[in-house]
Design a protein around this nucleic acid. Structure first.
Lengths: 162, 162
DNA sequence: TTCTAAACCGACCGCCCTGGTAGGATTTAC
DNA sequence: GTAAATCCTACCAGGGCGGTCGGTTTAGAA
């Protein structure tokens, strides 16, 4: 349970928007119905995406949301970051934005913090796998897998563990 | 805040044990004092490491804990997994252990779940960065950085993002 | 043989965050 | 002017997390 459901819902929302032709706004209600998600909660989720400039919106009747850029140019790094805030494997990463790798738990000691070395690597692993995936890829995957149950080798690109 | 503090405390505990010569048991109290961590809570943390077979223990006076294997042979993958449970970027990963990539949120639909493709890649990124780090590395890092404030290039090995 | 230091065990508990709801205000097409 | 939609803020219940407490058992030492 590393990421919250905001990330799950938000990514699904982005995929759904990626499947529509742009400039034709899609209402939240349509997405909520299609994905079986609570509308009122989706409002909060999409607000983060809007504030991050990933989607645009039109108010009033027949209003809705659409991607502000083509899906090929949207890396999932941006999406997840907008939804979850900074990608941090450990609490001390959220503050302490110096590039010096010091453990925030003992800031006075001047000792390098060995755990932070580990978490920095993990953070790198997460961010890289997110950066290497575009929204367009996920959209294509969702459309492909509607026809056939599953390609199953399509997971690659980041070489699954073990 | 992806990992809980159990991971932080447990990793620090393992590093501390790695700095001692083996077969000489170290008491939890010594570690708690050295790291400034609550002893009673550390007990719960170390219990997980013991159940996972990563540390061994001796009861009674002058008892304590030690690594069950040399630090070079302990990958941080095992350590974090013992402390945190399965490494799962999303809730649906915890159950649903089939190798088929189906979205557990709509198990009947038979559609491949595009979000799961993303989370699988993220999971791979995390696990790989953990597997590529040994406890011995962290021990060496912690001993080196006791002398000098920081090497700062030593973070590499998993090529930090951007 | 009693004292003491340690590992072990299980129950408990407050706080905060997550996921979600409620109710409204505002905008716009028809 | 009415309906459909975005937008905004406050609120709330539940659960997990970090932590405490009290006690039992084991084993070395005086």
């Amino acid at each position: 349970m590393i990421f919250s459901s905001k990330a799950e819902y938000g990514v699904r929302l982005m995929i759904e928007l990626g499947r529509q032709q742009p400039e034709h706004p899609t209402s939240l209600k349509a997405i909520a119905d299609a994905e079986g998600l609570p509308l009122a909660y989706l409002e909060q989720v999409v607000a983060r995406l809007r504030r991050a400039g990933l989607v645009m919106s039109a108010r009033g009747a027949h209003g809705g949301y659409w991607l502000s850029r083509p899906a090929e140019e949207i890396s999932m790094d941006e999406v997840v970051q907008a939804l979850e805030g900074a990608i941090a494997p450990m609490e001390c990463f959220v503050h302490d934005h110096t590039e010096r790798v010091l453990c925030s738990h003992m800031p006075d000691a001047g000792r390098g913090c060995a755990t932070k070395l580990l978490w920095t690597r993990v953070q790198g692993g997460i961010i890289r796998s997110l950066q290497n995936t575009t929204l367009a890829e996920l959209v294509a995957f969702s459309e492909r897998s509607e026809i056939q149950p599953l390609p199953a080798e399509a997971i690659g690109a980041a070489a699954p563990a073990s």
